[in-house]
Design a protein around this nucleic acid. Structure first.
Length: 263
DNA sequence: GCCCAGGGAATCG
DNA sequence: CGATTCCATGGG
């Protein structure tokens, strides 16, 4: 399928590179191959137009995935009065928090534990190639049903390392619905965290990433090493009221700003 | 050889 | 409770 979505104050590049998602690849001439769950497309931004080709799914899916129905101009204006967030909001106003698939987000951020982004991307790509289903642009992200067929030894072949046992436990609990991922929408951060942290290997950080990136709960605020550094540097007296108006986006701006050495 | 990466569990005081 | 240590792997 081929179509176009008109966008305003949006940056495909910043949205993809700001560290929230892992399954995309720059091809040529500004095009990206983008995967989300079992869907995929070729996508390219030309000014205020987002062009899709070879999409496996209609434009409603991507409209939702990119969160285009949410007013981000308003969210960024929440930060007025906080000098750091103001500066970041101006530079990175094109960022959107994606609405990713909860299971894909869960497994991806388990893989992210004490790991770096290029390696996380590699492992996830291998995981899809090994255990996903082939489609016209590549491979789907394997479902819990599919991953249920494999064990520690299979995952270790992908160099997942000590995280393999965490994935096995996550697949078990999701498949058995002891942790029912469909029930976590619209829960408070604390309640959702309580559920997700039943999984061996899922702590505060991974849980809040799933709640933010998989359930689009803007109150979730994952704290990794970069956010820790940013908080020490700029918020040693605690978060500002502006920060607390949208912790999810504030956190994403700080992460991207720190990694880019922009702040 | 060292240190680090979108951390978490186990152990110890 | 907080602090420390171990966990696999690859890049710098």
């Amino acid at each position: 399928m081929k179509f176009e979505i008109l966008v305003k104050n949006f940056s495909l590049r910043d949205t993809l590179f700001c560290g929230q998602c892992f399954r995309f690849k720059a091809v040529e001439d500004g095009w990206f191959i983008l995967f989300a769950g079992n869907n995929s497309c070729y996508v390219k931004q030309v000014e205020d137009s987002l062009i899709f080709e070879r999409s496996t799914v209609g434009k409603n899916f991507w409209n939702n995935y990119f969160n285009f129905t949410t007013n981000y101009d308003e969210i960024f204006s929440f930060f007025d009065g906080d000098l750091i967030l103001e500066k970041l909001a101006k530079a990175y106003r094109g960022i959107r928090i994606l609405k990713q698939d909860p299971f894909e987000t869960l497994i991806s951020f388990i893989i992210s534990i004490n790991n770096n982004i290029p390696r996380i991307k590699n492992i996830i790509e291998l995981l899809c190639k090994q255990f996903g289903e082939k489609n016209k642009n590549g491979y789907s992200f394997p479902t819990a049903e599919r991953l249920k067929r494999y064990d520690l030894i299979d995952f270790n072949l992908l160099k997942i390392g000590f995280r393999s046992k965490y994935i096995v436990d996550a697949v078990d609990r999701v498949y058995s619905k002891e942790v029912d991922l469909k029930n976590l929408y619209n829960l408070s951060v604390e309640k959702a965290k309580e559920e997700l942290m039943k999984i061996y290997g899922v702590g505060e950080k991974v849980a809040t990433c799933v709640i933010l990136f998989g359930y689009n709960n803007m109150n979730a605020c994952p704290v990794d090493i970069w956010i820790k550094r940013a908080l020490e540097k700029y918020y040693s007296n605690g978060a500002t009221k502006q920060f607390l108006r949208c912790p999810g986006v504030a956190q994403q701006l700080l992460y991207y700003g720190m990694k880019n050495k922009y702040i």
